[in-house]
Design a protein around this nucleic acid. Structure first.
Lengths: 266, 266
DNA sequence: ATGTCTTTGTGAACGCGTGCACAAAGATGG
DNA sequence: CCATCTTTGTGCACGCGTTCACAAAGACAT
């Protein structure tokens, strides 16, 4: 959840805590839903429930933006939608390039949540020449060679990486060199970027592993004794040290579950 | 990055901080890569660099698992891989169902990172009868009606929701009623679940919005004055609230509530 | 106006997470 | 066996984020 790369140097931006910024989109979504139902005002309690957070937290979050509420009444929905949108920078147009048009890239291109929030897919890029020209989500896929021109012509500052892990760093470097300063990374790799470039990562596998941890804990509490066989590796030895001979087995180089997925971002 | 729903009641599990749990998969990936290169041991410094974190943090994280390192040497890669896998519950098989086989669902089904981490796609579910039987990622899509039987027969405890927002809560309720206790939600909605059920959410739009915020800030620091026109909503009024008496009844509130609230309440 | 009721905005306390800095532990070499 | 060097494991301090609890502010009724 966090800017994986660079530790938090300028975490705090202009008085608005990072944790609060991360929740603003959540509030915005809830407010938008209310707006569509023509609800004029909401209390912090109601809105908090809709957004799934604590009401005190919500009020404190809003207090960083200013005093936009009316005591005894609540918040004006339309006004708040505008204020949050402005704070998040959604009142302007953000051209975005998506690199790596596999299953995931295509899903992203088709994702409706982008356009409705001020994001515009400026181009779909893929390294495979066979993909070039092929329409995905109504946009013709372009080859990587076009990347620089596209970024310059459209003033793209946000890039989405949906390539396999092996290509991610290379793609990232190119994006950055062409002027992209914010990257959303779906490839399961740690990206290295220069100072000033923001990286956020979404890793499907990691999310599942975290769930598995809690799931195991839940199961373990009920029945402390193991019930499931352990089909994976055996207990392995803790390495007693002594004469170190590396030696055996090296046939497993790129073999099994290599991080390089044949299909998609693994 | 958090269990959207239920506040954090049992955040701390068994002495292992949630923040540490969230990083374990990261370490595991880095260690797996080292393992494939037959590297026998790593220092906290090296591993930390590979995982993109601080070495002190990494050592402290590992200290929650136990003393698995050797001073003056480092950590045994294979052993650590096993220990972390076991801690995360990856030494056992986790059958998973994916509900909603659209672009995103298909991408998830094809995602290689699952199988390599102990997760097995037990079934692909879609509400569209036309999808039934259609093979995706080598697995035939099944209709929602089969959900209960599939979950029971396979002992599924983890479900992935990749449906449109409108259907998410309903799908969630069904999964939970059939015994699923961990949910990975890709739909842009706040899910309500009973106590004891874990929910993690991945929201593509939110990630982009957070990036936009920082991007705007970066741009704003260089040129404080705005350069882009505001194509979205105008400044709107902050809600007058009538301090004094307004001569006539001002009905300049929202337009008539003729708006169609056709959208799902969710 | 005045009183009551609702809801915001925030001061303050608390807990978690992070990072520093160092002592302890073990390897390694003589 | 002793000296030295490397690297872990952790005590401690600090800062961020969360939550409580309440005074202030305004709406509303009388």
């Amino acid at each position: 959840m966090a800017t994986g790369r660079t530790h938090r140097p300028a975490t705090r931006s202009r008085g608005i805590p990072e944790a609060t910024v991360a929740r603003l989109p959540l509030y915005l979504r809830a407010l938008t839903a209310l707006s569509e139902r023509s609800v004029p005002t909401v209390s912090s309690e109601e809105l908090a429930a809709a957004a799934g957070v604590n009401s005190a937290k919500l009020r404190k979050d809003f207090s960083y933006l200013g005093s936009y509420g009316t005591r005894g009444v609540g918040y004006d929905v339309e006004y708040l939608v505008y204020q949050i949108s402005r704070e998040l920078g959604l009142t302007q147009d953000w051209p975005v390039v998506i690199v790596g048009i596999g299953n995931l890239g295509a899903a992203l291109a088709n994702y409706g949540g982008f356009a409705s929030r001020g994001f515009r897919v400026a181009a779909l890029i893929d390294a495979d020449p066979a993909m070039a020209g092929k329409p995905v989500a109504g946009i013709a896929v372009q080859h990587t060679d076009e990347l620089e021109k596209i970024i310059h012509d459209n003033g793209v500052s946000i890039g989405v990486i949906a390539t396999p892990a092996g290509a991610a760093q290379q793609v990232c470097d190119r994006l950055v060199s062409y002027g992209v300063t914010s990257i959303l990374n779906f490839a399961p790799t740690v990206l290295s970027v220069p100072e000033g470039v923001d990286v956020r990562k979404v890793d499907l596998s990691i999310e599942l592993q975290i769930l598995a941890f809690h799931e195991q804990r839940k199961a373990g509490e009920e029945a402390s004794s193991q019930d499931a066989a352990q089909p994976v590796a055996p207990p392995v030895r803790p390495a007693p040290a002594a004469g170190t001979e590396d030696g055996h087995d090296d046939s497993d180089r790129k073999g099994p579950d290599g991080d390089v997925p044949a299909v998609m971002p693994a």
